[in-house]
Write a protein that binds this DNA or RNA. Sequence first.
RNA 1: GCCCCGGUAGUUCAGCCCGGUCUAGAAUGUGCGGCUGUCGCCCGCACGACCCGGGUUCAAAUCCCGGCCGGGGCGCCA
Length: 435
Amino acid sequence: MRKWRRTHYTDQLGPEMDGQEVVLTGWVRDIRDLGKICFMVLKDRRGTVQITAPKKVVGEELYEVISGLGRQYCVAVRGVVRAHPEAPGGFEVIPREVEVLSKARYPLPIDPTGRTPAELDVRLDARVLDLTRDEVRAIFIIQHEVLRAVREFLSKEGFVEVFTPKIIATATEGGAALFPVKYFDKEAYLAQSPQLYKEELTLSFERVFEIAPYFRAEESHTRRHLSEFVMIDVEAAFTDAEDVMEVLERLIRHVFKAVKEHCRKELALLGREDLEVPQVPFERLTYDEALELVRSEGFDVPWGEDFPTPALRALGAKKPGFYFITDWPTASKPFYIKPRDDRPELCEAFDLMHGWLELASGGTRINDKELLIRRLREQGLNPANFEHHLKTFDYGMPPHAGWAIGLARLMMVITGKQNIREVVLFPRDKFRLVP
RNA sequence: GCCCCGGUAGUUCAGCCCGGUCUAGAAUGUGCGGCUGUCGCCCGCACGACCCGGGUUCAAAUCCCGGCCGGGGCGCCA
């Protein structure tokens, strides 16, 4: 079907083009048939334009075609631009020929104009149609810019983008529940993190990053958890936690600047024109300081434990922007995090927070094999299950550090959306496997 | 997994507490008709729904129990 080649997007038209013939393609957003004149709003990915069909001008036959169109029909229109003071934007297109490329069947599951609102769950069931709305699509255009900016920044910082396996042999790290998959005649699992692989790769590339989906079979049923989610992972040789925290906060700043500069229209659609580029460095709060704050709010959290959600909310109320929580109790963090030399009950781990939302976590890693084995045992894990990983520590493993940030959580902060499902195209949780 | 709240046309909401007046109301949508400047067009007519199963009752959208699904919270989330 080559007959209809678009000559212009709707946002490339204007009253100064009066008299010019154009070919437009898109979807019928609205039809207003007044009897002897019919107005059709044509939408493409860049905007809308009014197609005006006066019966006397376009003739009986074409008038029937146009007034017979329905919302969300996919159409091509050949017509002439005409300046007209009463048309939106001061111009309209008088059609000469209209071809229906695809019809819509009614009833549509949601109103594509958004005038009759639908709940998120209903919208997700009809996600593809939901995405015809500019304000929904804006989220993902912003995400595209975020990813572009992340790659730009990390590349400039000397990081190499890599891919590590998403099908893995064993439940390497313990902890989070994994999804088992059949792998020929073996049982395998979907990766919950690239942690061990990215550490190993610092031995050769020194600085790597990976942007990929991960899978966790948790019971979590909250506004900020999904079973499948994209993480941006970074790992760097010859660095410690403080070094990579600086990379992280500068990255966040770079991303916010890029979004602010390149996604003005999309931010406006989401009511986020006021998005502020955060200043660096972000505030550093030690675990002990955070604990004290939380306790002063009346939460009885024992030393050594992670903060329960209500405590984090209280913390977020006091610290609404970006901040780090550092120097966590060693026992509260994974085995590969390096304990502090001076106080081994604490470790060189950090979390990046935005208000009460945990965005990223990272730290200095252990590069001493014997210590790593001891830490595995202390966490109740069997070193034999980490044979391949431990072997790489015999090849000159450099000291290294890194972090991982949840892409969707970052998108929640940028877009102001309160439910992670809003910022994921086709979210997966315990109760949703389709579409 | 636990707690609270909810499930009514395609969508969004009313009715439910206090069972009968519900042949279930509205908006939007869809269909048909009318209308030459609309832009959430307007006017008229029509179409379309009580989540599933069981129970109580003369009678259930309404009360009770179970299930499924949804919203929120918590837990889990190295």
